[in-house]
Each structure stands twice: as structure tokens, then as C-alpha cells.
Design a protein around this nucleic acid. Structure first.
Lengths: 327, 327
DNA sequence: TTGAAAGCGGTACCAT
DNA sequence: ATGGTACCGCTTTCAA
């Protein structure tokens, strides 16, 4: 079924038939109605390719994530999805497997058939991101690329709240369980922990974990205890969850013996004990990125802005007053 | 940059330039090479819409899931993603929010711009699925629609293994914590538990939970104990995880006081105690569905087949010999 | 082995 | 308010 068929059936020209869908205000109401009736009858629907070829707009966007299996992303994806749907956009999903090279491949593959990109925690060189943004409406999540629209989860605030709480509870030595050092999120959280600790007069060490995984968290407990810290702030909930398990394995109790704070609040209250964590981010950043992108697609003249998503500490059960463990 | 530009630069006709990419065997090697060199130099890449308009093929597929935030799906998505990428396909992701109506909307929106669909655990009426499959290459995951290509995770086998193990460990009364009764997965698992229990001479009850959630699992522990069962097989890991928490809250120990078996193995060993569960499904079903779909796109004459993905019991720590709880 | 030209299905400018 | 028509960028007969 093509427009021509509909036009013929309705006894109008192709132009008129086309306008019935795109600019109905230019056509007499009854004509519009008649055309639409025939269209429905014939089961007509526009060919997105033909339309895109002619208009240069696709009504598609691309969302690229480093790892859909990382629990931070599904809520984000969901939000982008549903928002896009409402705005009558479809979304391509790309999973870069945390590799800059695959990101590039995905972007190149997709760039001709989308009106814009959302890059979540991209690993690409800043230069490439800027180049892309210059060509195509693009918004970046959790990467602070100057000159590009970006939405950043301001975990720093929540992390500071966590450190302050810990300090107030008598912890004098804490540890930051670091994630991938090349990510903006880690850099920001690391600095926040260190800064807040210094401000609060608390000693703070860093344990490098690299890829944020449950196992990494579980296995760092030994060295964590060895640092003499009585509390830890983890790069994310996944690591914190692993730490919980690690303590349980060595027979120590959280929070009685040791306090643990997570980040992202993606495990909600499903850990034991329920994780005190920095909440707010995943879903909200997705929603914000999408609306920014849609605005950008509508009017690419918008000046690049930096949007911060608030994230605050949620106090659950994994934090308690300091009590020193056997050394 | 269009093909015409490349052709002009290389001093050949558009036809020749086109063939250099699509049918290089028809063109003299050195000509092909020259054209490709100019194309690279000019930064040319084909316009997918133009190509699709002309060939009717898009090199895109759509993957529709009921809820990307359900941990069963991310590994599946990941697998489809990476496989598609390798086959030079891009993938649209749709999240139906568990609603048949949204599934339909997504399918209609996407059907003109994809070469095929993968529907994961679709809620749509069978009739609609068959209609779609008749029009467009389609493969369904975890729904047994006669006459349509489908891949089904054969959790039944694993569930039977679980029941047998439980029986062997002296459990004489078990419970099935049911998921959404309208899903194929629940129907299959439910029947498997009941059947295996009867075969093993074990009493089996069903507790309806509806939407499979951590909370539902946690809150059903009271009624679970009330049934007099000493072990439970849950519809999925998420529920089982909740059950674990529920027991912990009432001060009972799993597996000493009660045995719990999950399904899907999506939480891996991240629960405490590590969950004994029916493993193998998510990622494998994604991979299988993709390769089936690609074959189907290549040659839509293939007879609809039903593929079963093996899923077996993985014995971890949440199961132990029966020991009756205080009644 | 290469070129000319007719579409693929719409859109939008220019007329009427 | 409606129609005629030239593209949009590429593929693919048909000829040469």
C-alpha cells in the first residue's frame, strides 16, 4: 500500500494525500477525513524510509550504553524508551561492551538513520564526542565533555553526605572502593570522598577495583580490613553488595563491625542488610537526557548545557556507629 | 556525500560506483579499488534509507521485551545486540512494560523499518503474533505459539531436577511460588513442579504471587511457612531472592530451616546464601533467537521450528535436607 | 565490464 | 484548497 494507492482511491492527488497526514491544516476537513478513511481501509501506513529520504528526518534516536547488564542502565534505558515512544520516536540500542572502539562502530553504523544520540557513560575520546555532537544532536550522560550537552548525576553531594554521616558516627578512617578510573563517575566520586573526608578530619584511603563487579567487592574485604578503616564508600552498589557478602564470609557483621555505603541505588533494598546508598540517578538521568535531546533535535541552536541530577544519601541499614575490629 | 559524488570523483557512472560496494565481482578489480579509495577519501557511506527504499531490506531488527529492568532480559539483549552487530544488523529495542497493547504499538511503529522481530515473552494474543509472523520474519522467545518460530527455555527439566533433589533430601511437602499465570514460563514451571512432585510422591502446593518481585517473595514467607512445606521452588530468582530475605527477617535460616530454589540464574551467586537455581536461559535464548531470525531473514521459507534451550539445576547453597520448622 | 535510466515511496516547491 | 513534478540517494534491469 502506497500513498499513490490511497490518493487514487480517494480521488485526489498524491500531494493532497500526503498533506492529509503531514499538514492537514492545509486541506479541507472533509477531504482530510475521506483520505484518512481510505488509508485506514487499505491498511496504509507511511514508509519511514521514503519519508526519511525525502525529509532528512528519521524519528529515530540511538542510545548507546557500555553494558546493559550493569544494573545502572536498565532503568535509564526504560526511561529513554518510554519517553521516546511518547514523542513518537523509536530507539536503537547499542551495547559497546565498555569498549571505545565498539562505541565508534555503533555510532558510525547508526548515524545515518537517527536524528540524535544519547551516549551513556561513553569511553570514546572527548574529541570524537565533540565531533559527533557537532554533526548530530547528541547528549552525553555521566561524562563532562565541555561544549556538549550533558547530564551528570551529581553523586558527589550524596557521597559527601555519606562521609559526613560516617564522621558523625565516629568513623575516623574510611576507604573509597574505586571503580574504573577512566570514568567521569569514578573521578567525581573519588574526589568527593577524599575532599569530604579531609574536610571532616577523617582519614581516607582508596582501594582500586577496576571493573565494578560483585566479585571484586567480595574479594577486597581482606585488604579493606587491613587498611584499618571502619567504613567504606563504594563506587557503586554492585561493589558494595559484594563487600557485604565478603564480610559475611569472614564472619563479620555489617553494620555492627563495619559500615558500608553504596552508590546509584540500583539494588534498592534487596541486599542484606539493606544498603545505605546514594540514590537518584539512573532513571532520572535517562529522562533528562531524552528531553534534552528532543529539544536539541527540534532546535539545534540550543547552547550546550550541563545538567546535574541530584543524588542524595538514603539511609538504610548498612551503616552504624564506628566500632573497631580486631587488628 | 552521495554515491554520485564518488562516481564523479572516480570518473565512473553511478551504477558502477554502486556495484563497487554491492557486487564488486561484476567490476574490474582495479576499478573497484579506485572507487573505494575515493569513497574513503570523501568520507562516503551509504544512506541506509535510500538503500532500504530501493531494496526493501533494512539491515535492522527489532527486539521487544516486556521489561528491560527485569534481570532476565539484559543478558538476552546483550546477546542479541552483539550477534546482530556481527551480522551487520542494528537493533531497535522496545520495552512494552508488560502490556500487550504497547507491544502492538511498538510492532506497528517498527514493522516498516526492520527485517524481522524478536519478541521476548510477548503478551500479545497468539492471533496477532501469527499475523505478524506471516508478514515479517519473527521469532518468539518463551511463548509456545504454534506455527511460529520460537525458542523456549526448557526450565521444566531443571525444575524437575530440583524437585527430585528436594525429594531425595527428605522433603515431603514443597511449594511452588508462582509467577504471572498468563505467561508460558509460569505455566510450564508450575506444571513441572506439580508433575515431578506427584511422581516423587511429594505433596506440592501453589502460592500465587502475580508480578514476580522481590517484595512479593519477601512477603509470602508467612503463608509459605503456614503451608507446612519445608522447601519452595520459585518462579524466578527475583522471587527466590525475596524469599531469602523474608526468612532472614523472621529469624529462620536457609537452608537449615528451609530450602529455596530459584529459576533463571540471573542473580548468579550474589545472594546469601548462594541460590540453588535452574540455570541457562537468558543469554542462550537470545543468541538462539537471533540466529534463527537471521536464517529466517535470509530464507523465509524455513519451516517454523520450536527450539528448546536446556536449563539445568545448579546446586549452590540454598538447599539442604529437610528439617521441620516449629508449627 | 560499464553506463543510462526507471523506479522505490514520499515531500515540498511552484502553480493554478 | 488542490495538483503537477522535481527531487531525496541508491539499486537494478536493460543495453551497449
Amino acid at each position: 500500500m502506497t500513498l499513490a494507492d490511497v490518493a487514487r482511491a480517494a480521488g485526489v492527488s498524491e500531494s493532497t494525500a500526503s498533506r492529509a497526514f503531514t499538514r492537514p491544516d492545509l486541506i479541507r476537513d472533509d477531504t482530510v477525513e475521506r483520505i484518512k478513511r481510505f488509508a485506514a481501509e487499505l491498511g496504509y501506513s507511511v514508509d519511514p524510509h521514503a519519508r526519511a529520504l525525502s525529509t532528512g528526518r528519521t524519528q529515530n534516536i540511538a542510545l548507546i550504553v557500555p553494558d546493559i547488564a550493569n544494573p545502572f542502565f536498565p532503568p535509564l534505558v526504560r526511561e529513554v524508551e518510554s519517553g521516546a515512544e511518547q514523542a513518537d520516536f523509536a530507539v536503537f540500542l547499542g551495547d559497546s561492551d565498555e569498549r571505545a572502539s565498539r562505541e565508534k562502530v555503533l555510532v558510525d553504523r547508526l548515524s545515518r538513520q537517527v536524528d540524535g544520540f544519547i551516549l551513556a557513560s561513553p569511553r570514546m575520546p572527548e574529541e570524537q564526542i565533540r565531533e559527533l555532537a557537532a554533526r548530530t544532536p547528541t547528549v552525553v550522560i555521566n561524562r563532562d565533555v565541555e561544549g556538549v550537552h550533558r547530564v551528570l548525576v551529581d553523586a558527589a553531594t550524596g557521597v559527601r553526605e555519606a562521609v559526613d554521616l560516617l564522621a558523625a558516627m565516629g568513623h575516623t578512617s574510611i576507604a573509597y572502593l574505586a571503580g574504573p578510573a577512566e570514568t567521569w563517575a569514578d573521578q567525581e566520586r573519588r574526589a568527593a570522598v577524599l575532599g569530604a573526608a579531609e574536610a571532616a578530619g577523617v582519614r581516607a584511603g582508596v582501594i582500586e577495583l577496576g571493573r565494578p563487579s560483585y566479585e571484586a567487592g567480595r574479594e577486597c574485604v581482606g585488604s579493606l580490613i587491613a587498611t584499618g578503616a571502619t567504613a567504606a564508600v563504594a563506587f557503586d552498589d554492585v561493589i558494595a553488595h559484594g563487600v557485604l557478602a565478603g564480610f559475611s564470609l569472614v564472619g563479620l557483621n555489617v553494620p555492627a563491625d563495619f559500615s558500608v555505603v553504596g552508590c546509584d541505588d540500583v539494588l534498592a533494598a534487596t541486599t542484606l542488610p539493606a544498603l545505605t546508598t546514594v540514590s537518584g540517578g539512573s532513571a532520572a538521568s535517562g529522562a533528562e537526557a531524552l528531553s534534552t535531546l528532543l529539544a536539541l533535535i527540534d532546535d539545534s541552536a540550543t547552547a550546550p548545557e550541563r545538567t546535574a541530577i541530584d543524588a542524595h544519601l538514603v539511609h538504610r541499614a548498612s551503616v552504624a556507629p564506628a566500632r573497631h575490629i580486631r587488628r
